[in-house]
Each structure stands twice: as structure tokens, then as C-alpha cells.
Amino acid sequence: MIVAFLVSFMASAGFGILFNAPKKALVPGGLIGAIGWVLYMGLSSRNHLAQVFATVVASFAVTAISQCLARIYRMPVLAFNVSGIIPLVPGGIAYHTMRQLVESNYIAAIQSASQTFLISGAIAFGLGLGGTIIPIMINKWWPVAKQK
């Protein structure tokens, strides 16, 4: 688990560099990515539905932490949540879809394609939910310091 945390931290922070994230946001971005990945790994099992559910929870958590950090650092949310979302992207399953298609295994391809779509939908759902609910909560309990 510690290795998974470290590896996903490096992957997310590296993505920060690829997206030209501000230097101050690299370490927090990496941490967010690592937290999201460990959450996902902990929640998902071999079960298909659990994978989708774990993705929703993880991407919601990523968005929630990003919103708070954006408020603390006074930076756009985008600088944090992008690198956090990346580990959840179903790259492996998308690859298998494509591979099955090339090898003319259409039934298997449709199976993993629907899985890819469900997981991408789950990411979008978690992002959208977090992006809608969390700012309302933050504004209610943690109002902006009076701007002069």
C-alpha cells in the first residue's frame, strides 16, 4: 500500500509537470492523486460494479480536496484536480478494448468497451457531483475572508 501511494504520487506529480502546473501545486496535486488512487484500490475488488462505485467515490474525494486546496492556495481548481483524476482514467481497459477489436474478438471488445464507458461516466459523475456540492458547502461554512 505504501508503495502504491508513493508510485501514484510520483505519477500524479509528473502529470503536473506535463500540464505545466504551477510549481506550488505540484506536491499537493501529487498527494491528491495518491489519495484518490489508494481509495480506489481499497474500495474496488474484482467485482465489476464495485470498480465503478470505487471510481465515483475516489473522483468525488479528489474533487472535494481540490476545491478546499484551491480555496487555501487561491489558485484555480483546475491546477489540482486534473493530476488527481488521471490515475482513475481507465487506460488499461480502454487498451484491452482496442486490442480485442484488432484481434476480431468483438464480443469481448464490447464487454470491455462498456466497462470503459461506465468507468469514464463514473469519473464524470464524481467530478460533477463534487464540483456542484462542495463549493456550496465551502461557501456556507467557510466564507471568503473579507476582500478589501
Partner: peptide
């Protein structure tokens, strides 16, 4: 990644 998060938001 940025396109995906932008699209959703």
C-alpha cells in the same frame, strides 16, 4: 486530463 475535467465542469 484537462479536456476531460473541463468538459465535465
Amino acid at each position: 486530463g484537462v479536456l476531460i475535467t473541463d468538459a465535465v465542469s
